[in-house]
């Protein structure tokens, strides 16, 4: 398996072992520019762990993760972010004690060093960009509200907004519509459909209707390995997938 240079992300033979248990075992997949890849699989298949490995939160035991020719396995989390990989966590992770505006401001890609942060000025381009992103994620009326007072769905949107403001080339979303009301779910699907243009996205999701709407390709994980890969129609027709996952 040779990595083709036109892949944005190359994952090869990725393995991580927690005290002998291989949560991800010899996993390989490739993400092209502008592709929306959805990862599905039963609980414990290693979906979230794969994202953790790509963004540097968990260190791989073996294998290769290459993003635009850079070896992500050798980089720190913040360096991976600067390389252009954004990550949304499964549970909404926002800064509860800060306002929506301040949450977005911290994510604004400027002043990331200690002294840069000390001297950071809230100038007009920063404010405009924050307002722009806030309106994309339906929060432009709540900029001065503390994030702690947002609803669950609004926190999810805020975190998506915090990623968008970084403008990553590869966006990784872990169950972005989990725990949302029907109305919020619909709104989020529209939001995601809009933001997955012009960038590559890896999404973990269980909602099959939603997956069908957005996926370019689907990877089915099972016990840390790729069980099947291809279009939604392809994986849905795959007997192995029906056996372990979709059939139940």
């Amino acid at each position: 398996m040779n990595a083709r240079p036109d892949f944005l992300l190359t994952v090869e033979n990725l393995t991580v072992s927690f005290d002998g248990f291989k949560a991800v075992n010899g996993l390989s997949f490739y993400v092209e520019p502008n592709e929306c890849r959805v990862i599905i699989g039963p609980n414990g298949a290693g979906k979230t762990t794969v994202l953790d490995l790509i963004c540097g939160r968990t260190r791989a035991t073996d294998g290769k993760v290459e993003f635009k020719g850079q070896d992500l396995l050798k980089m720190r989390e913040d360096q991976i972010v600067h390389a252009g990989v954004g990550r949304k966590f499964q549970t909404p992770t926002v800064y509860e004690d800060l306002t929506v505006f301040e949450n977005l401001e911290i994510s604004y890609p400027k002043g990331h060093g200690v002294f840069g942060a000390l001297m950071f000025r809230r100038d007009d381009p920063v404010k405009e960009r924050i307002h722009e992103i806030a309106s994309v994620v339906f929060l432009d009326d709540l900029l001065d509200m503390k994030a702690a007072f947002l609803s669950h769905g609004q926190k999810q949107w805020l975190e998506i907004g915090m990623l968008l403001i970084q403008d990553p080339e590869l966006l990784m979303l872990d169950e972005p519509v989990a725990g949302m009301s029907v109305a919020e779910r619909k709104q989020t699907a529209e939001l995601l459909n809009r933001i997955i243009q012009d960038r590559s996205v890896i999404v973990i999701e269980h909602d099959m209707k939603f997956v069908e709407d957005i996926a370019t390709r689907v990877t089915v994980l099972h016990q840390g390995k790729v069980l099947s890969e291809g279009s939604m129609a392809h994986v849905q027709a795959d007997p192995k997938v029906i056996e372990v996952y979709l059939g139940h």
């Binding site: 963004c55 913040d78 966590f89 992770t93 926002v94 004690d97």
Partner: peptide, 19 residues
């Protein structure tokens, strides 16, 4: 503000690109 963010969600700060 980053200090406060760090106190509450250290991982998120890392994945906002801060060391």
């Amino acid at each position: 503000r980053i200090l406060i963010a760090m106190r509450d969600q250290e991982d998120r700060v890392r994945f906002s690109g801060y060391d």
